[in-house]
Each structure stands twice: as structure tokens, then as C-alpha cells.
């Protein structure tokens, strides 16, 4: 069981997440995909942390920095989920759906052309 394995696993999970972000139609599923990306990052952090623990002898903070970053990512995900929920509800209230492809307020209006 080598470090590479973890990184490749993380890579695959990351790619799945990206694919999800690109292909999913509803905002909530896009958010799920983002969670996948975050988790892949966490795998990386933890794996490298463990690898460095076994090969180097740093200070306590050096040895556990990967954990700490993983914690930060989890906290970020939590915050993101909270904000996301609020955004979805707001979107839903305005559009009665959360299909992002149907929400293109950013595009120029047709009349301008």
C-alpha cells in the first residue's frame, strides 16, 4: 500500500466530481459533486500527512498540518452547504426550480442585439 494509491484514488474521485459539476443539471447535484471534489482533496491531505509522519520528524504542527487542513476543508464544506441551502431556497422561491441550465440571467438579453 503505497502513497501513489491514495493519490490515484483521490484523482479518480476528483475527476468524478469535475464530471459531475460539468454535467449535472440541478444545483443540488452540482453541490454533491463539489463535495466529492473536496473529499478527494481530503484524501490527499491525510495521505501526505501520514507519509510525512513516517518519513520526517518535524514539529507537532508539521506532523499534523494535513489533519488541520482536512479539518478546515470539512468546515468549509459545512459552511458551503449552509450557504448553498440558503441559495437553493432563494433560487427555488424565484424560479420554482433549480435547474441551472434554465437560469441564464447572466446572458445578454435578446432585445439588445
Amino acid at each position: 500500500m503505497e502513497l501513489e494509491w491514495f493519490v490515484y484514488l483521490s484523482l479518480i474521485l476528483f475527476s468524478i466530481g469535475i464530471l459531475g459539476v460539468l454535467t449535472q443539471k440541478t444545483a443540488i447535484r452540482i453541490l454533491f459533486s463539489v463535495e466529492l471534489i473536496l473529499n478527494s482533496a481530503n484524501i490527499n491531505f491525510v495521505a501526505f500527512n501520514s507519509y510525512l509522519q513516517s518519513t520526517t520528524s518535524g514539529t507537532v504542527i508539521d506532523q499534523y498540518m494535513g489533519w488541520v487542513f482536512a479539518m478546515v476543508v470539512i468546515a468549509l464544506a459545512a459552511a458551503e452547504a449552509a450557504v448553498g441551502l440558503a441559495i437553493f431556497i432563494s433560487l427555488y422561491r424565484n424560479f420554482r426550480e433549480i435547474v441551472v441550465a434554465n437560469i441564464y440571467e447572466l446572458a445578454e438579453s435578446e432585445e439588445d442585439e
Binding site: 460539468l22 441550465a101 441564464y104 447572466l106
Partner: peptide, 17 residues
Amino acid sequence: LRKLQDGIVGDYAKFMI
């Protein structure tokens, strides 16, 4: 080029990727 600006976030994300 303005045709690309369709306002759909997913398309922007594709180009970013």
C-alpha cells in the same frame, strides 16, 4: 465571441476546465 456568453454557468465551467 459574444455567442459564447450564453449565461449558463455550466458552459463557463466547461471552458474553465
